[in-house]
Amino acid sequence: MLEAILFYGFAAMALAGAFGVLLSRNIVRTAVWLLATLGAAAGLYFLLGAMFVGAIQLIVYAGGTLVLIIFGVMLTSKNPHMRFAPRRAEVAVAAVVCLALVGLLVWVLLHSTWYVGPIVQTRAQWAQTGVNEHPWAHDLQAVTQFLDANHVAIVDAKGVPCGPVTLAGLARAAWYELTVMPQGDQGDRRQPLHDADGKPMSGDQLLAELHALPPQDRAIDDAALESAIAALESPDAPARTVQQVAYACGDADLLTDADGDGTRNIGLGFLGVYLLPFEVISVLLLAVLIGAAYLARPRVPASGGTGGGR
């Protein structure tokens, strides 16, 4: 209910901003309307659990790019209330085209099947998919045993084990608290992870399961696990949750989603899988810095060269 209220609030703000941008004829007001959209989008990211992206959106987009745009507007408008009025016919054509576009796009989007996974299925359902014949299956024996004990499996929409089905996947599933759901359903999947009896799994159960795993199949060693358990034994600690266990285990993979926002996972991604684009972006930013600084630099006489300092 609260989620719905927040969503509609942010959505209304974003749409108001978008239509403000579209309809406003004063370029500075256009930029201010864009601020509404950017802020609302950040709110939506928070709502979707992407805290870090939301914060980056506020810092870089609203606090950096938008300021730059407004700065550009101020520098390029002689008359402060400059207006650019499109022609009537153009407006009519654009309105019709855009409405048609929205209609088509929404219709297509609503009638599409999206990728769904990882989803958690019962052991029985997993068996039906024939995944045990999958070449990966023998690598996953230990995990399978563990999952078997809980009657859960993490597979994607096609019944293929998603990614590396390791504790990371389990923790992810635990965090999203996924449960059995039919393929293609796009509802809210944040329901409790169930144990064999169909009751929500507790942190103690997860901890016990972690203990039961052979050491090579979990990303944390025994000592770390012991200290995690010890840390959770503090007198005024409430009943342990799955997230707390994952947090206390201190394992990078486990921590990812126990943080609640994937921030750590993003950091690991930037240093791991996405290291290359991350570094390439630095080349891009260097080039942009040089290009933009060169272009925006005031004109220098051709004979004088640039900057005596060099």
Binding site: P277, V280, L284, V288, I290, A292, Y294
Partner: peptide
């Protein structure tokens, strides 16, 4: 990478 590559090729080209 496609997106990043295209942007890295494009942005300096604009300048």
């Amino acid at each position: 990478m496609v997106v990043v590559g295209i942007e890295l090729a494009s942005l300096p080209s604009y300048a």
